[in-house]
Computed example of a mutant assay.
Amino acid sequence: MRCVGLVGYGEVGRIFASGLLQAGVAEVLAWDLLLADAQRREAPLAHAAQAGVRATEGVAALCAGGPGLIVSAVTASNTLAVAEAVAAHIAPGTFFLDLNSASPGTKQRAAALIDAAGGHYVEAGVMTSVPPYGIRVPMLLGGPHAARLLPVLQAWGMDAKVASERLGVASATKMCRSVMIKGLEALVLESYATARHYGVEDAMIATLQETFPGIDWQTQGSYFFSRVAQHGKRRAEEMREVAQTVREAGFEPFMASAIAQKHDWMAAQARAGHFANLPPQPQWADYADRLLAARPKPDGAA
C-alpha cells in the first residue's frame, strides 16, 4: 500500500503522517477543516509541506488521490460526519480506519456508510495517549475487514491486534477504559486544586502515595493537568461519546457526563488565557494556582 489519506491533521493526524512516511509509505495525503479556513490554514499547510505530506483541497480530492487506506483522526463529534463525507467519494476496496473515540453505535453507523459505498470499514480503539508512542500506540481493531488490514499495519510497525470481527467490541473496550482514565484526570484536577486552596496538598498526596505506591502522584498530576489544559475540548467530546456508550448499555451515564463537564470547564480556562506564559515543564501546582487566581470573587470582595 503506497498511499495513505488522513482526514484530520491535528495532533494525532500529524503524528501518524510522520510515522507512516518514516515507515516507508510513499505518499501521505491530508485533509482538515482548518485547510478551508483562510485565517487558520497557513500553519497546517506549512507543517504539511515541511513534513512531506500533500495537503488536499477536500475529501473528494483526497479520495481521488488513490489512497489504499483512509485514516479518520478527528474529534469524536465529527466521526459520523467524516464517514458520510468519505462515503460519497471512496473508491471501492479502499480501507477506512476509524481511530476516533466514538461509541459502538456511532461506529456501526459509520461502518454502514463506508461499506455501502464499497469501502472496507475497520474500527480502531486507541488504547492510550498517542504522543508517547506515535503510530506504535496500542490499538484494538474490529469488524469483518480488520484481519485483512492487520498485516499491513503491523508491517508499518503498528502495535495493532484484532479484538473481534464484530463491530463495536474494540470501541466499547476503549470507551469503558475512558470512564476510568478520563475520570481519573477529572478527579485529580478537582482534588488537587481544592487541596491547594486549603493548603493540604502535600498531606493529601502523601496519603495517595501510601495507598497506591505504584503511581508517582506528583508527576502523574502534572501530566494530567497539562494534557487536559491542552486537549480538554477533545477529551470532553470523547466523554460525551462515552456517555452515549453507557446509554447504549442501558445505564444512565452519571459519571461520564460529569467527567465531560469537567474537561469542558478546563478547556474553557485554557481558552480564557489562564494558563498563558506558564514556566517550562509546568507542575500541576502551576496550573492549580492559575485556576485559584481565576475564581470569581465573592460578592462584596475587593
Rank of each mutant, 00 (worst) to 15 (best):
M1L: 08
M1A: 13
V7C: 10
V12N: 01
A17Y: 13
L21A: 05
V25E: 06
A30M: 07
D37M: 01
A38Y: 01
R41Q: 00
A43Y: 05
H47Y: 11
A49L: 15
G58N: 07
A60Y: 09
A61W: 07
A61E: 10
A64W: 03
G65F: 05
G68A: 13
L69G: 04
V71T: 09
S72L: 08
V74Y: 00
V82Y: 05
A83Q: 07
T94K: 04
S103I: 02
Q108F: 00
A117E: 07
A117D: 06
Y121G: 12
V122E: 05
S129K: 06
S129C: 00
V130N: 08
P132V: 10
I135W: 03
I135L: 15
G142V: 08
L149F: 00
L149D: 06
L150Q: 14
V152K: 12
L153F: 00
V162I: 10
T173P: 01
I181F: 12
E185A: 03
E185Q: 09
V188Q: 00
L189S: 04
A193H: 08
H197Y: 14
V200W: 05
A203N: 10
M204W: 06
A206Y: 08
T207D: 15
D216W: 05
D216A: 11
W217T: 09
T219A: 13
S222T: 11
Y223Q: 12
F224P: 06
R227G: 07
R227C: 12
Q230N: 13
H231Y: 09
M239C: 13
M239I: 12
A243N: 02
M255R: 06
A258G: 15
W265V: 02
M266E: 03
G273N: 01
N277I: 01
N277E: 15
N277G: 11
P279D: 08
P279K: 02
D289H: 07
R290A: 10
L291T: 14
A293T: 02
